[in-house]
Design a binder for these strands. Sequence first.
DNA 1: GGCTAGATTTGACCCTGTCCAATCTGGCCG
DNA 2: CGGCCAGATTGGACAGGGTCAAATCTAGCC
Lengths: 143, 143
Amino acid sequence: MEQQTAGDLLRRAGLRSTTQRRAVLAALQGHPHSTAAEIEARAGIGRGSASGLSRQGLYNVLEDLTRAELIRCIEPAGSPARYELRVGDNHHHLVCRVCGRIEDVDCTVGRAPCLDPVESKGFTVDEAEITWWGVCADCRGSA
Amino acid sequence: MEQQTAGDLLRRAGLRSTTQRRAVLAALQGHPHSTAAEIEARAGIGRGSASGLSRQGLYNVLEDLTRAELIRCIEPAGSPARYELRVGDNHHHLVCRVCGRIEDVDCTVGRAPCLDPVESKGFTVDEAEITWWGVCADCRGSA
DNA sequence: GGCTAGATTTGACCCTGTCCAATCTGGCCG
DNA sequence: CGGCCAGATTGGACAGGGTCAAATCTAGCC
């Protein structure tokens, strides 16, 4: 359903269905938390390749898709920006301090934990982003 | 008391008390969430000034102090790293999407909210970092 | 007053990302 | 079906933020 819908998804979001955008969406399938570089590599094309996307193009696409909420961007401290297809479910992340591995953690919603800062200091809050830092099983083992 | 204790703090943390380290600590007093550039400017010295600290020196100091837990480093998405003196109280942050302003939010501790991801996927978690995103009162007003 | 491990400096360098101007193309229209 | 044009993409220069490595300096102990 992906090939079919990629274009639809884009068009429904008010974006033109272009080769580059479809390639980026495809490159993210099954590879959450990818960096721009990984997406570029996986999109199957280096700079200058015929069907390739330029660096600027890649960033444009990522920004467009993010704004259209087709993908989500996360930026854990110390890491370049990473992108994933899961959107709209307010899930959070678990990051290994050693190897950088990232795991998704579903939000214990209902009462989304911490969705309300106790004191919002006059801010209109629209998102609570939670990052858990620790060491993954593999890294703990080999330490 | 700062001049007096800055050195003590450092020594107690097992670090030598140097002009640069004391200057960085002083520059953070009353200025939480400062970037490296702001600290450098506030430390009263540009590059090459007699009592100045070099760029590398600044980063070394920041890293040393962070590791010694005398300061804390936060890196909100889209912002360069920021440093603050509050440590050990596991407080969180509220960030304005428009002007970038950052406010501290005390952790509703006791049961630190969300300290346990529901599923920790084998990770040994040692920190839960929460960032609330929104728009501050000022920016909402002028929009 | 020396010594030495630890701290600092200098300057080159890298990665991630952005700006801008020129070119190309999806997809609607006649 | 061919043309049009706003929207998309490209290329190349550039910038911010940070790191690396080697040489020099200095806090603090003897």
